[in-house]
Nucleic acid binder design. Structure first.
Length: 868
RNA sequence: GCCGACGUGGCGGAAUUGGCAGACGCGCUGGACUCAAAAUCCAGUUCACGCAAGUGAGUGUGGGUUCGAUCCCCUCCGUCGGCACCA
């Protein structure tokens, strides 16, 4: 098969042009003030979600998004933009480390090797990346600044008054002014409680197999996302980032982004803002108050018991001696349960009575206090008032344990049991008769008046667990002295991990860095933080670093950041950012939320010029194997780009990636489809080239500098129009279809106008750059008008005058059914086409002996004759 | 369970301020070229009936609005994705 003669000599010219582009630095984008920078042009920043260089290499699915952005990048250059189109490597992280442990190859070695392979593969596809801007997150020159940003987080706090981060010094100064007598230690405690990066001892997701703690987002159905190992909950001291402070802004500032609505919705749901109230229930006989959060304060009169999360701090206080043993046993059982077990057992509610009672603030009623694991310590206040009449979970629990069920909302239509919708308050004292919304407002006002509650908002979003007990990640720029953490200075950066031969997890909660005895202790007795940052860290700001990847003095060059992120124009805070960001839906929540969070902090502190990092986001769909299954090694349906390039060339690969279907939909790969676009490219080639008797390719003798016929002009101009418009909307598949129509038209021509071919090559150049370049160059040897490279030509304009029709076909319908077609002069009026329609034989036959009830005439479109 | 997206020929997919359903490609059928094949070129290809002209049906299901619905509204079914005791 591979011995078969190629239909056009891509194995020769594809590497040739890749070499030429590289040598001439065709796609290098200079920064402002650098040689070659053209200030008159507008900027366009088009970015791929950079890959994690795994050991398996790329498959055709990865290349879909990369091809889409490359075509846009090439198109925008031809449209006269300064285009920033970079690529780099997200190289820290668990898979590389797991691989290293398995093979004994050091992660840095494996990573370097994988990057080499990925880069080679990408180069063979002919992508127009500015390789001078390549970056790697594991490079000390890069992670120095990741650590620097961490210091900014550590040394900042969120001021709720201005809803923005401020330097921690401002908080310290304020506190010193307000509380001059406060001790050094007290001040430290207050300040540490406000930092955007803080330490907390809390139940975390501990994965014994991986030897690390994981973020909630990295745990899927009670198992680790990487490897699928069991995860248990246990309390540990951890670094956490205060992303919840930004919950409202992360929510509100989504509005201005040009993102798919579905992705915005995913983020909104993830943040999970709930508006309601906190109500205070006194613990009967104790000097304690149980704070509960509810979104239905209007049902307070229906509360028949209170439930605390098993981990709630007041559990011990409210438990009576008689119940102590049972409570203790239950808490122990719950604490050792893994998340998986907890989820599995979700169907069956469990809980224990504490023996204690609480006083309902609205009616002073004494109701029992239970503990149950259906109440989560990490959400709201970790305690609820149970209203089994109007909450399904409480209803289920009350039924199981024989607790009272009381109905306090009258449903609009009768319901058998538990009713969770809105209705009218009843059995609720001063709320009786009020609709749900009003009852909520009234009871909140009442609670606030009484000092026993307040309006309150809660989020599902949790603070971001930021430390990992692993080796292959950024070390924290933090040391510990006398049980307190301290930030290292900026001049100490980067903190380079010690070279460890044995970087395996220790088997205990101690991170692997603990093994570097000489490294952990500093000369003055302080010890280093041993945790490392999670994989997300490096990808939170790489798009910024691309603007000036080699800057050694600052995390980004100020002018470069401003130029590429916000352009030269006025600073519209909501319009800036990467102009087009393309990647998979798997990052819809985590990466995109984390990056937005860091960006907002940097923005608040004045380090970046926009409030959002990515203005327009597009998710490419997944490419499935020929069997309609997700591509995976185990299924054996993975298609490697290397094989396609070998057989059909990079241009065919690029074109098929785009011809497959709409960028955003999931679609299966098919080899005969590749064959189809390959044939199309061969037809383009033969439009310009003939082979002689020895099989040598030479310029076709049919080529000539002749005028185009009207029909040819129309095809040329409608192709310019269609391709231009489709590129703007990323509808690559239909743009390619139109170029096929173009080629079909000219293949039949006896004499082929060079001018038409010239236009086609320019339009085709972003899609199939090698072929376009090669034919362009060959035509240039015999014809005028082919100076420079195809990829550097200005994008052609279409002229409507060639598209205008003198005649249009009008459809004639009878009772909505197609019965005839006639050609008429364009823009005939309603009455005129009506007459034409009525004159038609078909209409006369159909209306014979019947009465015409109505005629609908749409100029240039159709006439519909309605008869009885 | 809740939220969201999507259902169009044998296949991937086009077409929507409501106006010729099936562009383009794959596959298939026939023809030209060839000793022959491959490649290429030309023609045809939604389904049913028919030699044909044509007739009827047709965009997951059932209904509605309309002169007219792939497109708008309601119902149900299916596929995919997200969330999942979040009070």
């Amino acid at each position: 098969m591979s011995e078969r003669r190629k239909q056009f000599p891509f194995p020769e010219f594809e590497p040739k042009w890749q070499q030429v582009w590289l040598e001439r630095q065709t796609f290098h984008a200079p920064n402002p003030r650098e040689p070659g920078f053209e200030p008159a042009k507008p900027k366009f920043y088009v970015l791929d979600m950079f890959p994690y260089p795994s050991g398996d290499g790329l498959h055709v699915g990865h290349l879909e998004g990369y091809t889409a952005t490359d075509i846009i990048a090439r198109y925008k250059r031809m449209k006269g933009f300064n285009v920033l189109h970079p690529m780099g490597w997200d190289a820290f992280g668990l898979p590389a480390e797991q691989f290293a442990i398995k093979t004994g190859l050091h992660p840095s070695v494996a990573t370097a090797r994988n990057i080499g392979r990925f880069k080679n593969q990408l180069k063979k596809v002919g992508f127009s990346y500015d390789w001078a801007r390549e970056l790697t997150t594991t490079d000390p020159g890069y992670y120095k600044w990741t650590q620097w940003i961490f210091l900014k987080l550590y040394n900042s706090w969120f001021d709720p008054k201005i809803k923005a981060a401020r330097p921690i010094e401002e908080l310290i100064a304020t506190r010193q002014l307000e509380f001059p007598d406060q001790s050094e230690d007290e001040l430290r405690d207050i300040v540490d409680e406000h930092r955007l990066a803080y330490v907390t001892e809390a139940p975390v997701n501990w994965c014994p197999e991986l030897g690390t703690v994981l973020a909630n987002e990295e745990v899927v159905e009670g198992k680790s996302e990487v490897g699928g190992f069991p995860v248990v909950r246990r309390p540990m001291r951890q670094w956490v980032l205060r992303i919840t402070a930004y919950a409202d802004r992360l929510l509100d500032e989504l509005e201005f982004l040009d993102w798919p609505e579905s992705i915005k919705l995913l983020q909104r749901n993830w943040i999970g803002r709930s508006v309601g109230a906190q109500a205070m229930f006194r613990a009967d006989g104790l000097d304690e108050v149980i704070n509960v959060f509810t979104t239905r304060p209007d049902t307070l009169f229906g509360a028949t018991y209170v439930v605390l999360a098993p981990e709630h701090p007041l559990v011990n206080r409210v438990t009576t001696p008689a119940q102590r043993a049972a409570v203790q046993e239950y808490r122990e059982k719950v604490s050792t349960k893994s998340d998986l077990e907890r989820t599995d057992l979700a169907k069956e509610k469990t809980g224990v009575f504490t023996g204690g009672f609480a006083i309902n603030p609205v009616n002073q009623e004494r109701i029992p206090i239970w503990i149950a694991d259906y109440v989560l310590i990490s959400y709201g206040t970790g305690a609820i008032m149970a209203v089994p009449g109007h909450d399904e979970r409480d209803f289920e629990f009350a039924q199981k344990f024989g607790l009272e069920i009381r109905y306090v909302v009258e449903p609009p239509a009768p319901v058998e049991s538990c009713f969770v919708g809105d209705g009218t308050a009843k059995n609720s004292g001063f709320l009786d008769g009020l609709p749900t919304a009003e009852a909520k407002d009234k009871v909140i006002a009442w609670l606030e008046e009484q000092g026993s509650g307040k309006r309150s908002i809660t989020y599902k979003l949790r603070d971001w667990l930021f430390s990992r007990q692993r080796y292959w990640g950024e070390p924290f720029p933090i040391i510990w002295r006398n049980g307190r953490h301290e930030a290292l200075g900026e001049s100490d950066l980067p903190i380079v991990p010690p070279p460890l031969d044995d970087y395996r997890p220790t088997g205990t909660i101690e991170p692997p860095l603990a093994k570097a005895k000489g490294w952990i202790t500093l000369s003055d007795g302080a010890t280093r933080e041993l945790n490392t940052m999670p994989q997300w860290a490096g990808s939170c700001w790489y798009f910024l670093r691309f603007t000036s990847p080699d800057n050694a003095n600052r995390f980004v060059d100020e002018a470069a950041e401003r130029y590429w992120m916000s352009g030269d124009g006025a600073r519209q805070s909501w319009r800036g950012g990467v102009d087009l960001y393309v990647g998979g839906t798997e990052h819809a929540v985590l990466h995109l939320l984390y990056a937005r969070f860091w960006h907002k902090v940097l923005s608040d502190l004045g380090y970046v010029s926009t409030i959002e990092p990515f203005h327009r986001l597009v998710n490419q769909g997944m490419i499935l194997g020929h069997d309609n299954q997700k591509m995976s090694k185990s299924r054996g349906n993975v298609v490697s780009p290397d094989d396609i390039i070998e057989e059909y060339g990079a241009d065919a690969l690029r074109l098929y990636e785009m011809f497959l279907g709409p960028l955003e939909s999931t679609k299966p790969w098919s080899m005969s489809g590749v064959e189809g676009v390959y044939r199309f490219l061969a037809r383009v080639w033969r439009l310009a080239m003939d082979d002689d008797q020895e099989g040598q390719w030479q310029l076709s003798s049919s080529l000539s500098n002749v005028e185009l016929s009207a029909k040819q002009q129309k095809v040329v101009h409608s192709t310019i129009k269609k391709v231009s418009e489709d590129l703007e909307s990323l509808s690559y598949n239909t743009a390619i279809a139109q170029m096929m129509i173009f080629v079909n038209e000219f293949t039949g021509a006896q004499i082929r106008p060079v001018e038409a071919l010239r236009t086609l090559l320019i339009l085709l150049s972003p899609f199939a750059p090698h072929l376009a370049e090669e034919i362009w160059w060959r035509l240039g040897t015999s014809f005028a008008g082919f100076q420079g490279m195809a990829c550097e030509q200005p994008w052609p304009e279409w002229s409507d005058k060639y598209l205008a029709e003198e005649e249009v076909q009008i459809v004639i319908q009878i009772n909505g059914k197609l019965r005839d077609k006639v050609n008429v002069r364009k823009d005939l009026g309603k009455d005129e086409i009506e007459q034409v329609a009525l004159a038609s034989m078909k209409v006369r036959e159909a209306t014979r002996g019947k009465s015409v009830r109505k005629i609908i005439a749409v100029p240039n479109k159709l006439v519909n004759v309605v008869v009885d």
